[in-house]
Amino acid sequence: MHGARKAFACAVILATTALTSGQSFADEEVNVYSYRQPSLIQPLLDAFTAKTGIKTNVVFSDKGLGERIAAEGENSPADVMLTVDIGRLDTAKQLGIAEPIKSEVVAKDIPSQFRDVDGDWVGLTARARIIYASRERVDQTAITYEELADPKWKGRICTRSGQHDYTLGLIASMIVHHGEAETEKWLVGLRDNLARKPTGNDRAQVKSIYAGECDIALGNTYYMGQMETNDAEPEQKDWAASVRLIFPNAEDRGTHVNISGVILNKYAPNRDNAMKLIEFLTTPDAQEIYAETNFEYPLTPGVAIAERVKGWGELKPDDISLSEIAKYRKAASEMVDRVAFDDGPAS
């Protein structure tokens, strides 16, 4: 066994096995490096194994998996990498670790704006970058991203770091729509409307609204579902109840969406099984599991959105290509530093 493969076997933190009692399958497997938490993908892997008999081995980390695959090179045990943001998908592409995914199944299931133009990554689910608004202190029910720079919001907005992947995706989308000069003016206006320095994750922004520290915040849709169903930390249900969702630009170009997605390692040792997994993840069955388990939007046309997610309002997604947005992430990151966004509002 190659050293990397042995290390992988020792590092495996989650594996699924065939679920059909009494059946024996060939000793087949697929190795997954995942930025997605095991609890979020376990139901999908269970369903895949039950259908195919292919065992899945998963290594989870919240950082560095693309770089790890690149360092492992030809000895990498990874067959696929699952990730949660266009930024990490694009990073994998730039690292040169991805083999183009060529599949009629995938091309049929996933719309082109959610696939890399060269096939180096494929989107699996979408989440919208929306506005959480205080039910008590915000009356309006429509908003635009551009409006976040309006002085009427001065001292009323919370958000996480400008250098976080989710924020960079939004800023990059603004560059695509408005150009760098106008986007920089907008970002300065947004910065000066902040109630405090950017800090915490998306849930922390909702907590700040609940505490009265700000009135609106940027966040991803699926966090609402995670808070509303959090029995382990019931105080998060109170945070969620204090806000409602507003989908920005619903009346014009649509709301910015980001994606979770998958790449195929160009040195995948189990390439055929990897392709079977990728194709399975785009099928209606798998997309329904994503929708119900993770409160995300399926990308495969015709797959139903979870009832809880429907209750938040109708999503009209911005149809700009995610590949186009990825081109401007570096410019967005430089802009965040240039305007000192993470230092908070100017004095």
Rank of each mutant, 00 (worst) to 15 (best):
N31I: 08
I263Y: 09
F25Q: 07
P301L: 14
I325T: 04
G87M: 12
G200S: 10
S347Q: 10
R253T: 14
V206S: 05
Y328F: 15
T144A: 07
N294R: 07
H177L: 05
Q140R: 14
Y267G: 05
A241R: 07
P345D: 14
S347G: 15
L194Y: 12
V106G: 03
F60G: 04
S333K: 14
A7M: 04
F247S: 01
P301K: 13
I171N: 07
L148I: 11
R271A: 02
A98V: 02
S61E: 03
L245S: 08
D85V: 04
E146S: 11
T141M: 03
G311R: 01
L168Y: 00
H256G: 00
V80N: 09
D252M: 04
Y132V: 00
G73I: 03
A9Y: 05
E72R: 04
E307V: 01
E296M: 00
I101H: 04
E235G: 01
R329D: 00
D337H: 12
T20I: 12
Q23S: 14
T16C: 04
P269R: 07
G313N: 01
E146G: 09
V59E: 05
D231A: 12
I289F: 08
M227W: 09
S323K: 13
L264K: 09
K330G: 08
P269A: 10
K237F: 13
D62L: 11
V138R: 12
T91V: 11
H256V: 15
N258C: 10
L281Y: 08
D343G: 03
I86T: 00
V257G: 00
R338N: 12
A286D: 13
E307P: 01
S161T: 11
R5T: 15
Q140H: 14
S347F: 03
I171F: 08
A250Y: 15
K276S: 10
A26C: 04
E235A: 11
Y132L: 11
M275P: 03
A47G: 11
R5L: 14
Q226L: 11
R191L: 13
Q236K: 15
G179V: 08
R88W: 05
W239T: 04
Q42C: 06
L44M: 09
V206Y: 06
V106I: 09
T52I: 06
D165T: 07
G344A: 02
Q205D: 08
L168W: 00
G66P: 06
Q113L: 10
T125L: 02
Y328I: 10
D319T: 15
P345K: 08
S61V: 02
Y267A: 09
D62A: 07
S173M: 14
I110Y: 01
Q23F: 13
A306F: 11
V243S: 05
A78R: 08
N273T: 01
P248K: 04
T17Y: 06
L194R: 01
P317R: 09
V106H: 01
Q163L: 15
